[in-house]
């Protein structure tokens, strides 16, 4: 396994009094793509919120590179090099397509991704750069959300349920573009309900069930049966 970039160590996560994660441990290596699968309510979103800092935890429960980031604010973590394509895209409706992309570069991290690189990846966005982001189709909005995350030149990119609510053909296109996106040495965590896609895209896979890791292994080595069992708990 390559050098570890993200290390989650026995993470317990709470919403108020409600505990959503129980002792979750996970590693992501440099340049590695890890998928996290699990049913609704298994704790996938809580995990993403904990990594990005939208939910704060004990400092040493999440480490990124040399830094303990468990208790940092989301904007501080973003500057360290973690970006997310959030579930449901969540573009800024008051901002144009191009402004949505530019604001992704707000953290000021140097790198290869720029407006022109994003437009080269998704040419349709260049044509619509001055439109309101709400006027785009769902698939195009997803491109903006991905572009917005890339603009910060992150070392680790999280994809939270990017196929949710999109037509199958669009999902196919987006997943076909993913290797271009993360092939540049970037690490990624892909959260997915679609087991097949998750296994295809990733090097390793983690299954979450009721807030606990129920399975982990190399994507090529875990069987469908094992995943189904870890997914549904039957």
């Amino acid at each position: 396994m390559p050098e570890t970039i993200l290390e989650i160590d026995a993470l317990d996560s709470f919403y108020g009094d409600f505990q959503a994660l129980f002792g979750v441990s996970m590693q992501v290596g440099k340049g590695e793509v890890v998928s996290v699968i699990g049913a609704n309510g298994a704790g996938k979103s809580t995990l993403m919120r904990s990594v990005t800092g939208l939910l704060t935890n004990r400092p040493d429960m999440v480490r990124f590179g040399d830094a303990q980031i468990g208790a940092l604010r989301a904007d501080q973590i973003a500057r360290l090099g973690i970006a997310m394509v959030p579930e449901g895209r969540q573009l800024f409706p008051s901002l144009s397509v191009e402004e949505n992309l530019i604001i992704g570069s707000q953290v000021g991290r140097p790198g290869d991704w720029s407006l022109s690189a994003v437009y080269a990846l998704f040419p349709v966005l260049a044509e619509r750069r001055n439109q309101a982001s709400t006027s785009l189709s769902g698939g195009q909005q997803q491109m903006v959300a991905i572009g917005r995350a890339l603009m910060s030149n992150p070392d680790l990119l999280l994809f939270d349920e990017i196929s949710l609510g999109l037509a199958p053909i669009i999902i196919k296109n987006i997943y076909e573009a993913l290797p271009d996106v993360i092939g540049t040495g970037m690490s990624a965590i892909v959260v997915e309900q679609d087991i097949t896609r998750a296994v295809e895209i990733s090097d390793r896979v983690y299954c979450l069930q009721e807030g606990r890791v129920s399975l982990e292994g190399k994507s090529g080595e875990v069987s469908r049966d094992a995943i189904s069992k870890a997914y549904f708990g039957v």
Partner: peptide, 20 residues
């Protein structure tokens, strides 16, 4: 841009490195 983004969605604006 930061004002409008934060007004639209505080969480996602934080993810963009904006301290609300």
């Amino acid at each position: 841009r930061a004002f409008r983004a934060t007004s639209d969605n505080q969480d996602i604006a934080q993810l963009m490195g904006l301290n609300k």
